[in-house]
């Protein structure tokens, strides 16, 4: 019997594969073919604090990418760079290059108002306007001039509420205040509001952390449906949620992008020791 046949078809040395805690270079493949957004050498500072350190990452079309990591790791800061939400913080400085469909979103010529319509955001706490359900959804299309008539606006409102899985629950009470809805419904209303301005990308910053498991399941189901038309970047503290909803997962640690890869690999066989420690609950 020859020795070669006795060797495993695929073998590896785990000691050689694992990347130790001290190494902070990104493990995995941050770049993809035909990306929607490209981030290169992104640094973010809050005053003297270096919150994001030289992060490069692509975000693909029609993908859900989740950002995970302990509190303060920079994951929210990073997605807030993607629609320039950090511009609202005086001490915040962003360095590097972020492009949407090839255009630098930090270029002086870029108007952030249409940018934030293109790259919408849903926050941790549902934050409907103190207006009717209808007005919550209609506000964006109206100010962006997306509807030429009342009929067109009605259609956008209905379509957006349908896409957000809320239409059947609210169609008979569109004139009631958005704030009167349940937490889960309010969050879906916020998603409808983001959808109404025809975004390309939806950023979600812990969208389910204030919701019960049933409302969470509905949002996760919605994310799965929205993926067919939008790109979604989600920050979550729930690893189960990241594993359920996303196709790629990025792990951040103290401002570094430690590991990025297919979600099923990150949660079954991560390569970086820091990722492994975090997702198995050995952190700290």
């Amino acid at each position: 019997m020859n020795n070669e046949a006795n060797q495993p078809a695929k073998r590896s040395n785990p000691g050689g594969l694992r990347v130790d805690r001290e190494n902070r270079e990104t493990v995995g493949e941050p770049f993809i073919e035909d990306p929607r957004m490209t981030c290169r050498n992104v640094d973010v500072f809050y005053g003297d604090k270096h919150a994001i350190i030289n992060v490069s990452l692509d975000i693909g079309k029609n993908e859900v990418i989740s950002m995970i990591g302990p509190s303060g790791c920079g994951k929210s800061t990073f997605i807030r760079c993607l629609n320039r939400m950090n511009d609202t913080i005086d001490t915040c400085r962003v360095r590097g290059q972020i492009k949407l469909d090839g255009r630098d979103i930090y270029d002086e010529s870029i108007d952030v108002v249409p940018l934030r319509a293109q790259v919408g955001m849903v926050f941790q706490k549902p934050n409907p306007f103190p207006k009717s359900i209808y007005q919550n959804v209609a506000y964006g299309p109206r100010i962006h001039g997306l509807a030429q008539s009342k009929e067109e606006l009605d259609e956008i409102v209905e379509t957006s509420l349908r896409k957000a899985g809320l239409w059947d629950e609210v169609k008979d009470r569109l004139d009631q205040p958005g704030t009167a809805l349940s937490g889960g419904q309010q969050q879906r209303l916020c998603i409808a509001r983001a959808i109404a301005v025809s975004p390309e990308i939806i950023l979600m910053d812990e969208p389910c952390s204030a919701l019960d498991p049933i409302a969470t399941a509905r949002i996760e189901n919605l994310i799965d449906e929205l993926r067919h038309n939008y790109t979604i970047a989600i920050v979550t503290h729930s690893m189960q949620q990241a594993s359920r909803v996303s196709q790629r997962t990025a792990y951040f640690h103290l401002g570094d992008l430690i590991e990025i890869g297919p979600t099923e690999i990150i949660f079954t066989n991560p390569k970086h020791q820091l990722t492994e420690d975090y997702i198995t609950g050995r952190f700290g």
Partner: peptide
């Protein structure tokens, strides 16, 4: 045991 340690499958090649 190999799978626990490495996350990879140990497969015997076709002979």
């Amino acid at each position: 045991i190999f799978f626990i340690a490495t996350g990879e499958n140990l497969l015997k090649p076709a002979r």
